[in-house]
Computed example of a mutant assay.
Amino acid sequence: MGVPDALEPFRTHAADALVAFDFDGTLAPIVDDPEAAAPMDGVAAALERLAARFGEVAVISGRPLAFLERWFPEPSGVTLVGLYGLEARRLGERADHPTSGVWRETMADVAGLARMKGPEGMDIELKGLSITLHYRRRPELEGEVIAWAEQIAGPTGLRARPAKMSVELHPPIDEDKGTVLQRLAGSHTGPVLFAGDDLGDVPAFQVLDELRAAGRGVLAVVVDGPEVPGALRDRADLLVDGPAAVADLVLALGT
């Protein structure tokens, strides 16, 4: 399927359409320093323009909401969902998941423990309601980081999720990119697009499958790259080559 044909239903039914994107590896290139990640040039402004025409434009990410708002400050019109659904800003209103607040102290405690007793060389990113344990700068630590995350998850009640060159620790709340996309899609009647590149995006692609089976128009965009799992490529209606190609797709949606 070519890009123009794939995007035509979204242009035709823009007012009822939902278009949603992962951030890292999709809108923004993967970088060694998570704080240095930034969307491709022009993408943030292009998504804001789309938000004025489409039913809804969303960024659904494992990043904290505060980080996403660096690039999409109000009044951008772009829905932002952070920490896999634990934080959100939609229609100008900010909200945390109703059962998430009690876990902030636990996360801070676990981050402190990781600094003191975790594998030496592991990078620790505390996100308020989640923690990412990175081994991108020290790939030889992969086994140690995974083992440490699984070891600490049990007694603290947290859940460990694999990610690109990292492990994420989350509260035991049944919330992910799939539940988020399902809720957002329920607010619209038109076609649904989701673009992602990582294991954390799989639940969203599963929701696209369910919507497709129910007769809804969908477009699964997988952003290819050296770290993209082969099983994720198999889910693609449209396979694009990295964040630069996603930027082109965003611009094409607006034409």
Rank of each mutant, 00 (worst) to 15 (best):
R94E: 15
T106N: 05
G254C: 01
D16G: 13
A52V: 12
T179C: 00
D123F: 07
D176M: 03
L27C: 10
K164P: 00
G217N: 11
I173G: 02
A51I: 05
D22T: 12
L158A: 01
D201C: 10
E35D: 15
R90C: 08
R70C: 07
D5A: 15
R70E: 10
A231Q: 09
I124K: 01
L211K: 13
Q182S: 12
G254S: 08
G215K: 03
H170I: 07
V221K: 02
E144Q: 11
P4F: 09
P229N: 06
L253A: 01
M165C: 05
V167N: 03
A220C: 11
R89P: 01
E120D: 14
P39T: 13
A163V: 01
Q182L: 10
P191H: 03
F23E: 06
P203Y: 07
M40I: 15
G242N: 06
V78I: 12
A45R: 10
I173A: 01
H97W: 09
D201Q: 01
P34A: 12
W71V: 03
G82W: 04
G186M: 05
V31E: 09
G196T: 04
E74I: 01
D224T: 10
F72W: 13
A245M: 00
D96K: 09
V192S: 09
L91R: 15
G217E: 13
R183L: 03
A44W: 10
V222T: 06
V222L: 04
V19P: 09
A6T: 02
I124D: 06
D22P: 08
